[in-house]
């Protein structure tokens, strides 16, 4: 108990906890839209591109003689991630079939570019480790404020425009036919994903960023039937695993980012295993629609089974 108090009053830990909390809430919000759009891997693609941004920021910082040299790494990541997400969205729009191909090319280009540029900047690939796997213990007060601002922006747009973003993610064709600014809304989702990646970079690292956006949503959709609740459950799960994982690393020397992601996947496994049991206990949602049959059935057999109808429609 006193250990817990010690942790909460530790200024390093306080900053890290605030960052983890904010990232835990906002990453699943954006992730819900990505899963809805079947773009679960978008976060990974942006993460890889952000690595090039980190290295580019480093290179520029070194060239300008800034101290420390990586002071521009995070701004570089934000710029590269936003540019990358916009690029993916444009490619997705132009030729729908080549969307995953474009994503794959971004994966490779992002990592290769990052390693190449960091070498030019006078660093080694080892310098990138903190960005690849997170470095939440080194969060500064300025980092916390940046996190607060970006997470606030993500939540304001992600929740404030939920109905419109849902419409576009759910059925883009209908959204177009309703005259919605579909292009701008798609861009909004892409940019939100980019911002989330750069914010979560500190907590779990670029390689695991996407897990924080996607795994909580996978848990949420197991236990709910609605979009709103999926988002809610995902955010709660995100906060719980982020804060729990980080707290454990206060006592045990393991990588916070990896632990958070492993925890999330463990929760998913447990929920998925328990789901059939829980579903049975819930009041039954009759899967058979309460409508008359297509075919004439003798009254004696007039249960409500209408197999033909369910199968063909």
């Amino acid at each position: 108990m006193s250990g817990l108090w010690e942790m909460v009053t530790d200024p390093f830990m306080q900053r890290a906890l605030v960052a983890a909390l904010l990232v835990g809430v906002s990453a699943p919000v954006v992730g819900t839209y990505l899963v809805q759009k079947r773009l679960a891997l978008l976060g990974d693609g942006i993460g890889h591109v952000a690595l090039t941004g980190v290295a580019l920021g480093w290179l520029v910082g070194a060239a300008m003689g800034l101290v420390p040299a990586d002071v521009l790494a995070v701004p570089g990541a934000v710029v590269a991630a936003v540019a990358g997400s916009v690029l993916i969205e444009v490619v997705r729009r132009r030729g729908r079939t080549s969307g995953d191909l474009a994503l794959a090319i971004l994966f490779y280009g992002g990592i290769a570019g990052g390693v190449l540029l960091i070498g030019l900047a006078g660093g080694s690939s080892g310098s990138l480790m903190a960005y690849l796997f997170g470095s939440i213990s080194s969060v500064t007060l300025a980092d916390v404020w940046v996190t607060v601002a970006l997470c606030g922006l993500i939540l304001i747009i992600g929740l404030g425009l939920r109905a419109a973003l849902f419409s576009v993610s759910h059925d883009e064709e209908f959204a177009v036919s309703a005259g919605l600014p579909v292009w701008a809304l798609n861009m909004a989702v892409a940019v939100l994903a980019a911002l989330t990646v750069t914010v979560a970079m500190r907590v779990v690292g670029l390689l695991l960023v996407s897990a924080l956006m996607i795994v909580p949503v996978a848990i949420g959709q197991l236990v709910t039937r609605s979009f709103r609740r999926t988002m809610l459950v995902a955010s709660v799960v995100g906060v719980v695993v982020c804060v729990t994982g980080l707290s454990i690393t206060y006592w045990h020397n393991v990588s916070p980012g990896a632990l958070i992601v492993v925890l999330a996947i463990a929760v998913y496994a447990v929920v998925a295993a328990l789901h059939p049991v829980l579903a049975r206990r819930r009041p039954p949602a009759d899967p058979h629609p309460d409508i008359p049959d297509d075919v004439a059935v003798a009254p004696a057999g007039a249960g409500r089974a209408a197999p033909q109808e369910e199968c063909t429609t």
Binding site: R38, V217, Q221, S226, F227, R228, T230
Partner: peptide, 11 residues
């Protein structure tokens, strides 16, 4: 079916 469940009312 899209990746995230949505209720009839939401749609």
């Amino acid at each position: 079916v899209a990746g995230v469940p949505s209720t009839a009312a939401e749609v």
